[in-house]
């Protein structure tokens, strides 16, 4: 398992990943990263860096090294399960074609 790309112990301020909710009703979306000494300054920096033009109504910051990602080298095998299971999609079922509200 790996953390988000770019973190380094060598840096004086750690890296934070930033997520912004663009407006009410929408999930927070990853917008990028920044450096900050602690969580409260990371939130302020995120406001200044990623919402200078009203791009958000809420921000999340997460220490980059706290994020666990799937192993990129095993992505084929890791995401194999849905392959060949197209019966999980509505479009698999064709007999109901022409029937309304279905």
């Amino acid at each position: 398992m790996m953390s988000a790309p770019g973190t380094s112990e060598k840096e004086i301020w750690p890296l934070w990943e930033v997520f912004v909710r663009a407006s009410r009703g929408i999930s927070h979306t990853h917008v990028g990263s920044l450096h900050a000494p602690d969580a409260s300054l990371a939130v302020r920096n995120a406001r200044d860096l990623y919402t200078r033009r009203g791009e958000g109504v809420s921000v999340w910051v997460v220490p980059a090294d706290a994020i666990t990602t799937s192993d990129p080298d095993a992505k084929g095998a890791f995401f194999e399960s849905p392959a060949g299971k197209n019966y999980r999609h509505a479009s698999y079922y064709s007999k109901s074609e022409g029937v309304k509200h279905l």
Partner: peptide
Amino acid sequence: GHGLYLYSAAQTLGTTRD
């Protein structure tokens, strides 16, 4: 801000901003 977005992007390639 543009400088920081770009340092962030470069940092994902394994080089730190420092």
